[in-house]
Simulated assay, not measured.
Amino acid sequence: MPQKLDLSLSHNCSFPLVQEIWFDSLTIFWGEWLDLRVRVKQIIASGMVSPIIYILAFGLGLGNSLGKPTVGDTYLEFILPGMIALSSMTICFAGTTFSICGDRLYSKTFEELLLLPIHPLALYLGKVMAGVARGLLTSSAVIVIAILSTGKIFGFLNPLFLLLLILNCSVFAGLGVIAGLNVSSIESVGLYNNFLIVPMSFLGGTFFDPSSLPIYFKALLYVLPLTYTSLGLRAAAYLPLQQFPWFTLPILLSMALILAIIGAHQFSNQQD
């Protein structure tokens, strides 16, 4: 078992511990990457299916019958940032969950990971970094489609857009880690997907502007992390910097930090 998580300020804020956690996280990530790199094409292809279907059905199909959206020149432009957020969410959550679940329940190699003499936070961060890598691989392909469709290269490759994308990947990879540590079977993963990921795909501001909804619906939608990602990516791609919703960054960062605390605590008490 890894050492128990020590949340005391004096211990965790010491530079040697931070450095140790960082290098251990990179070690865990490298082990994951050795497995990921031989499946890069498969990961990219699996994460592109849903966004391409949505782009064809909604962006090119339904979009032609709609008026000018609140952001972007066409409805296709409006949903493209949401599709990037959606693809990163799906692959980060599913890939991370199935990776941990497979190690725990089938290959039975997860116990070896828990026996490593490294900090539980490093275990969590290493797994999240692998999830972020999955999300960025898939999102990069959707970004290429978005650039070819709109011709706005800098809109989809500016630092603010990429920062939001990384934060979104971190949040959903973190959720995937926690789900993977708690599920009791592969079938249980489907429950998380059906009751969390699928509803968020349609309610997270990917297909519509949440500001146009009644206040009681807004309260629900603004609980979802994907809503903040969709709003931020759309603004970063099309709007001037003065109109960017800066509140999206601290909210996503706070969610990622909260998940890191929960995930590290889960690793420190995991029994497999």
Score class of each variant (00 low, 15 high):
G67Q: 05
Q42T: 13
F208H: 00
L125W: 05
L167Q: 10
I251Q: 06
Y106G: 00
L125Q: 05
P69Y: 06
N168P: 05
N12F: 14
L165P: 10
A133M: 13
L231D: 13
A179I: 05
K108C: 07
F93V: 00
T227E: 05
Y222M: 01
S50A: 14
Q242N: 10
A130Y: 07
I251D: 06
T206V: 15
W30Y: 14
V49N: 10
F29T: 00
M1G: 14
Q266D: 11
F78V: 00
Q242I: 12
L231E: 12
L17N: 05
I197F: 10
I55F: 15
Y222S: 00
S25K: 10
P16C: 03
L80R: 03
S14G: 11
V18S: 09
L137T: 03
A122Q: 06
F161K: 00
Y228D: 02
A235M: 02
Y192W: 13
Q42F: 15
F15I: 12
Q243L: 14
E111V: 11
C92P: 03
I145C: 12
L115K: 08
L221P: 03
H119C: 03
N194E: 08
G205W: 05
S185N: 06
A237V: 01
I28W: 10
K152A: 06
R134Y: 05
V223S: 10
M83I: 03
G126I: 02
V177P: 08
S65I: 04
V183R: 01
A219R: 02
P245W: 08
L76Y: 07
V177T: 04
Y238E: 02
G155N: 06
G131I: 04
L196I: 13
Y216W: 14
P199E: 05
V177F: 11
L115C: 11
K41L: 15
L226E: 03
K4H: 14
T229S: 15
G63K: 01
L241F: 11
G151E: 08
T229E: 10
P120W: 03
T109N: 10
G102Y: 14
V18C: 11
Q19T: 07
Q266I: 04
L163D: 05
G95Q: 03
D272L: 15
S201D: 05
V18L: 15
T74K: 04
T109E: 08
F217H: 01
L203M: 11
F267T: 04
P214D: 03
H265A: 10
K4G: 12
P250R: 04
L239A: 09
Y124M: 09
L116P: 03
L56H: 04
E112Y: 15
G47P: 09
G176S: 04
S87K: 02
G180T: 04
L239Q: 11
T96W: 13
L191P: 00
D209G: 04
S211T: 08
L86W: 06
I100R: 02
D103H: 11
P51Q: 04
I53A: 13
G263V: 07
M255H: 07
L196Q: 00
L241C: 01
S8E: 14
S254T: 15
E32C: 13
P159K: 07
F195W: 10
L220Y: 11
